[in-house]
Design a protein around this nucleic acid. Structure first.
Length: 454
RNA sequence: GUGAAUGUAGUUCAGUUGGUUAGAACGCCAGAUUGUGAUUCUGGAGGUCGCGGGUUCGAGUCCCGUCUUUCACCCCA
């Protein structure tokens, strides 16, 4: 018999992990709904034609493809088989794939249901996505994204709201040391123009994005390797080393002047102004001219959130995309902007920081314990009363020693135990035990319900 | 996808230059008189040393392959 195993990069989630995951999702869902986003779910599988070409060449490579059903080789060109041309063969034998993110399926949904959608359309979606990446810490092949997107508006109010939602989520999760890094594709384009990057924009962006990781020298070395001149590099770091407040940075960059960057600078300024008008501030928000990450379909603002000192990378990312629906042949321009929280990484961070709520709060609240068959039956009435009062309760189903029942309550981090025996049944005074404190007192069922309600 | 490490009881680890029945801690299970957990005491179960080959008189300990996890690159939640 072969030992069972999981596919690389996938995991089971036991009861404790699940209660914690649900805790995080509840916080995020709460925030999304409070901001007026409506739920959406889409299939795990999409047609590959929907997914391909949206995430760049690397993205296409990281897509999990699903083999066609039936005799999938029937129509395959024999030359493709003998030629071992995997790429060409794939498009013939696989027409479906697992979703890579939630934004592209959302865009597909919008196009297909355009007639019944009121713009601007705001939806949230919390589902797993799959990437055929090589797993590492905080990097899985199957992981949950929690997305909120708005389509059908260019308004920067949406960007502001994304920042507000991020802040709200982190506040509720009890994380206070984090940074929302924000930049704009046009600002990046402006920088590229200033340093005469020409057609080498891509290499420039991936290089400067590593700035916080490999430092100035590392980036210089990398770009020099691609043939960049000293003069260009000096110019580049003159720009990237701009320090000061967010507005200082934007003002400075604006003075250096470049038409390409104007729109981006204006957008970022407006977002900060809107934040202020809302009554919030740019606390935790950092305009970062070196931030160049994000999916290839981003065209405007880009976001990334990191928890200070956390081992995993970004726990959230997002941006504005103007052309995604047009990629599906829509003639109507439907710009969108969205944010994605990485559930699994948030989990890892909260775990690392020890910020999960006490397991007692996530588990059953009361265990009904009993001494004999009669008290077990009596306990059923108590159980039903507890549940009707909205208390999370269970009864130990077997007639076993009280010791074993309390041991079970202890292991399951149940907060209270109600002990029922012959004496309690006749007096109506039940044993009400606080498991954490180890104290026990006599209380009537009514008094217990009252206590739990408070 | 490229390069590199790792893998010993449920968990965290120890295991001397390859040599007889592979250890510890914690956890787990059972007891310590009659209805009470988490602290104490006593006893007990549990590992074909990731898996498959090879070298050797003999391998947890060396070699090859494979899988897992991890690290760097790539990219990203």
């Amino acid at each position: 018999m072969e030992k069972p195993a999981l596919p690389k990069g996938t995991r089971d989630f036991g009861p404790l992990a699940m209660s914690r995951r649900q805790y995080i999702m509840n916080v995020i869902r709460d925030v999304f709904q409070r901001f007026g986003f409506a739920p959406l779910e889409t299939p795990a599988m999409e047609n590959l034609s929907v997914l391909m070409g949206k995430y760049g060449d690397e993205g296409d490579q990281l897509l999990f493809k699903v083999l066609n059903s039936g005799d999938f080789l029937k129509d395959a060109d024999p030359s493709l088989l003998t030629g071992r041309n995997s790429k060409a063969l794939t498009s013939v034998i696989a027409e479906k794939g697992l979703r890579y993110d939630l934004t592209v399926p959302f865009a597909r949904y919008v196009i297909m249901n355009r007639h019944e959608i009121a713009l601007p359309f705001r939806r949230y979606q919390m589902q797993p996505v799959w990437r055929a990446d090589r797993p590492q810490k905080g990097r899985y092949r199957e992981f949950y994204q929690c997305d909120a997107d708005v389509v059908g508006t260019d308004s920067l109010v949406c960007e502001m709201e994304i920042i507000l939602m991020i802040k709200s989520v982190f506040r509720q999760l009890g994380i206070d040391a984090y940074t929302i890094r924000i930049n704009h594709r046009d600002v990046l384009g402006g920088i590229a123009a200033l340093v005469d990057a020409g057609s080498a924009q891509g290499t420039l962006f991936t290089a400067i994005d590593k700035l916080d990781k490999i430092g100035v020298d590392g980036v210089r070395k990398e770009l020099a390797g691609y043939g960049w001149s000293e003069k260009q590099l000096d110019r580049l770091f003159e720009i990237l080393s701009i320090k000061g407040s967010n507005t200082d940075k934007l003002d400075h960059l604006n003075r250096i002047g470049t038409d390409v960057a104007k729109k981006g600078i204006g957008d970022l300024r407006e977002i900060l102004a809107l934040l202020d008008a809302y009554g919030d501030s740019d606390a935790h928000v950092e305009v970062d001219l070196s931030l160049a990450r994000g999916l290839s379909y981003y065209t405007g603002t880009i976001f990334e959130v990191r928890v200070d000192g956390a081992a995993v990378g970004s726990v959230s990312g997002g941006g504005r995309y103007d052309n995604l629906t047009q990629a599906f042949g829509s003639r109507e321009r439907l710009p969108g902007v969205g944010i994605s929280f990485g559930l699994d990484r948030l989990y890892d961070v909260l775990d690392e920081l020890g910020r999960f709520p006490d397991a007692r709060g996530l588990s059953t609240t009361v265990l009904v314990c009993h001494i004999d068959a009669a008290s077990l039956r009596y306990g059923l009435k108590v159980l039903s009363a507890l549940r009707n009062a909205g208390v999370r309760a269970e009864i130990y189903p077997d007639e076993v020693k009280l010791k074993k029942q309390l041991d079970y309550a202890n292991k399951k981090t149940i907060s209270y135990a109600i002990v029922i025996g012959p004496d309690e049944m006749t007096s109506g005074q039940l044993g009400f035990r606080n498991m954490a404190a180890g104290s026990q007192e006599k209380k009537t069922l009514e008094a217990i319900l009252e206590h739990l309600k408070a």
